[in-house]
Nucleic acid binder design. Structure first.
Length: 597
RNA sequence: GGCCCCGUGGUGUAGCGGUCUAACAUGCCACCCUGUCACGGUGGAGAUCGGGGGUUCAAAUCCCCCCGGGGUCGCCA
């Protein structure tokens, strides 16, 4: 027997028990005579004591132990002598007096600390991921991830959902992201595509009468990586028949709030989740996934700006542009350098420039503000009254800093969003103990493509248009809203879904508006349309990102820290060294000849 | 592909033209140490400063190119 107990579970009630423990040497304190070994397993750490007077052989052997050796000890749980308790660890009241020691395996000195929470170069962590996983942070993240997924399974099972697996080798379509491809050995020159999501499959499951389906679905996208994006990620994929948007939103809200309350009770969830239309979030937060843990709302001051003598404003407005402001509270005394940095940030996010107006020093109210307290390159082109009016729009006070961006509406959103995040970050406005969920609804269904100038689906072509907007499909497709919805939290998009089209004529109509030829529709979506013809029920659902869910629950700002074996930014797996070349024989079997670049 | 940031003993950092024959902490090795818990003490090994080129009397330090890593835009639900 290798163990009777885990290291981490031992408490006062185990005193007197003879236990066998196995684990890793977390730390060794060799006093010459007495040797203390902190023994670590998944559940925690316990102090073991080697006393040459009690067990001479074991004590002698313990002198050779080094960090990360794997050992088995047999000993007795004892109360620690008075005054030597360690309040920092849960097992700190007791210790194990060792009688026998067996070294199960030795270890080389690890390339980085496992027993200390020190920031280590991430490439090194990824190369030795199996060592990184021993560290408390990664271990806790993976254990929590398991409980989150388990909670979702239980939650949905209790509500009558059935988990159905869908294939990983599916058909490649030109829609959406770039597909990962798998060459077919049996069919020369042909390829499978890996699913970007099981979208069509789950709709067909609804046609198949499953009614309530879910799956922990692996999704693949061959696009560049980001802090919250990996080439493969896991989605809680869910679909229901005979539901309205309201039913789906209720389910998501219940699932996420009970999940957070159960597994992370120390985090505060604001209920009910606010629902904002896409138009609202863009106007107030310049983002479709705003962090609502802080205000810093964007205000429109186009009208006031138009009355000033500031030429930049006049030109922008004359060209149909707008002027927006964000208040940076208490930043009125920012230095030239700090203002330059904000400017830099705004311009690199696509703004033509950033106008700052410093509202003097803290103390007193906006009414006390005098012209000579105002600092801005544009100060002489506007009256004190105009400045106060702008300040009032964004609830600014004396001592604050107005950040103003002028330009074409669509083009200034990124800069406003960037500034809002930056101010919140530097002022530490986002409470790490709050989960600020919100639903975004009433997205536009169809938009004009920037590159091709053609109409394209904002979400996917299966999203049901809002009933009242259906008549607009011919006259003004861009005015049509969809029955889709997003769940965002703390600045991340967490889930996304919609009520789908379930009748062929409407689906054909959408394809027509999107400019698909009849021939293409048959080729790409014929199987879907045919399925709808056989009594497809009304249905809708969502896909929720498990990895991003883990990010908000753990507070990690990088998706790699909630995955066991993630890829780095260049999509390589540093543990295995994938991707890698393959043999000529393998290529030949797949009928593949490499191209000269 | 564009922009920004980073690369110094095993690890984390300091040094930012000369006093660097590269410092500190920790880890590692040896010896000492019977109540520590980031144990303590003494001694020791360990770095061609990511690579290449250039500027200079002199480069870890300045410039250029390359490589690697991260963030971001494009791309992507």
């Amino acid at each position: 027997m290798l163990r009777t107990n885990s290291c981490g579970e031992l408490r006062k009630e185990h005193i007197g028990a003879e236990v066998t423990l196995s684990g890793w040497v977390n730390r060794r304190r060799d006093h010459g005579g007495l040797i203390f070994i902190d023994l670590r397993d998944r559940e925690g750490i316990v102090q073991t004591v080697f006393n040459p007077e009690i067990a001479p052989a074991a004590a002698k052997a313990a002198g050779d132990l080094r960090s990360e050796y794997v050992i088995k000890v047999v000993g007795k749980v004892a109360l620690r002598p008075a005054g030597t308790e360690n309040a920092k660890i849960p097992t700190g009241d007791i210790e194990v007096i060792v009688k026998e020691l067996e070294i199960l395996n030795t270890s080389k000195t690890p390339p980085f600390y496992i027993n200390e929470e020190i920031e280590v170069d991430e490439s090194l962590r990824l190369k030795y991921r199996y060592l990184d996983l021993r560290r408390p942070r990664m271990k806790e993240n993976l254990l929590l991830r398991h409980r989150v997924v388990k909670f979702m399974h239980d939650y949905l099972d209790a509500r009558g959902f059935t988990e159905v697996e869908t294939p990983i080798f599916v058909k490649s379509t030109p829609e959406g992201a770039r597909d990962y491809l798998v060459p077919s050995r049996v069919h020369p020159g042909q390829f499978y595509g890996l699913p970007q999501s099981p979208q069509q499959l789950k709709q067909l499951l609804m046609v198949g009468g499953l009614e309530k389906y879910y799956q922990m679905a692996r999704c693949f996208r061959d696009e560049d990586l980001r802090a919250d994006r990996q080439p493969e990620h896991t989605q809680l994929d869910c679909e229901m028949s005979f539901v309205s948007r309201e039913d789906v939103l209720q389910l998501i809200e219940e699932l996420y709030s009970s999940l957070a309350n159960t597994l992370k009770p120390e985090l505060k969830v604001i209920k009910p989740f606010p629902r904002l239309t896409y138009a609202d979030v863009m106007a107030k937060y310049a983002s479709d996934k705003p962090d609502l843990r802080y205000g810093l709302e964007v205000a429109d001051i186009t009208d006031i700006a138009g009355k000033t003598e500031f030429k930049v404003f006049k030109t922008v407005i004359a060209n149909g542009g707008v002027v927006r402001v964000i208040n940076a509270p208490g930043c009125g005394e920012y230095t030239k350098k700090q203002l330059d940095e904000l400017n830099q940030l705004a311009t690199s996010a696509g703004a033509k420039g950033l106008l700052t107006i410093s509202l003097g020093t803290k103390g007193g109210s906006l009414n006390d503000l005098a012209q000579d307290m105002v600092k801005s390159v544009a100060a002489k082109f506007m009256t004190l009254e105009q400045i106060k009016e702008m300040a009032g729009r964004c609830k600014a006070n004396k001592g604050d800093l107005l950040l103003i961006i002028a330009g074409e509406l669509e083009k200034i959103y990124p800069a406003l969003d960037t500034l809002r995040r930056e101010i919140a970050r530097s002022l530490k406005l986002a409470d790490p103990h709050v989960l600020a969920f919100l639903f975004i609804i009433d997205f536009p269904l169809i938009t004009r493509s920037k590159e091709t100038g053609r109409w394209e689906a904002v979400n996917n072509p299966f999203t049901h248009p809002s009933d009242e907007d259906i008549p607009l499909l011919d006259s003004a497709p861009d005015k049509v809203h969809g029955k889709n919805y997003d769940l965002a939290c703390n600045g991340l998009e967490i889930a996304s879904g919609s009520i789908r089209i379930h009748r062929t004529p409407l689906q054909r109509k959408i394809f027509k508006v999107l400019g698909y030829s009849d021939e293409n529709v048959e080729k790409l979506f014929g199987h879907m349309l045919e399925a709808f013809d056989y009594g497809a029920p009304p249905h809708g659902g969502f896909g929720a990102g498990i990895d991003r869910t883990m990010m908000i629950l753990t507070g990690e700002d990088n998706i790699r820290d909630v995955m066991a074996f993630p890829k780095n930014q260049s999509a390589t797996d540093l543990t295995f060294g994938a991707p890698s070349p393959v043999s000529e024989e393998q290529l030949k079997e797949l009928h593949i000849k490499l191209r000269e670049e």
